[in-house]
Amino acid sequence: MLLIECPYCGPRAEIEFSYGGEAHIDRPGPEVSEEEWASFLYLRENTKGVLAERWRHAHGCGRFFNALRDTRTDEFKAFYEMGEKRPDAEKKEGEGA
C-alpha cells in the first residue's frame, strides 16, 4: 500500500485516497475539433517513468493535489498543489517522499 503525502494533511495510507489519473490535462471548450476533444478525454501519456498524476484525499480533507511518481518503482518524487507547475523531477530526486 502506497504512502501518500497529502500537502494539507501529511503522509497517509493509500486507502484514504482516490486516484485521479494523469495531471495537467486542461479541459478544452466545445469549440475544439473532435480529434482534440478525444485527445483530452481519452489519450494518455501512460508514462513509464516519472508521471505527474492527481490524487484526492477522499477520506481526509477532500482536496485534490498533484504528485510526481516513478511508475517503474512507485517511488514518489514530489507532491504539490493543484495549479502549481510541475516541479523538476530530477532536482527532487534526493528528497524522496
Binding site: S18, R54, R56, A58, G62, R63, F64, M82
Partner: peptide, 9 residues
C-alpha cells in the same frame, strides 16, 4: 467526487 474533481481542478 465528480463535482469536486471539476470544481477543484
Amino acid at each position: 467526487n465528480m463535482m469536486e474533481d471539476y470544481l477543484q481542478t
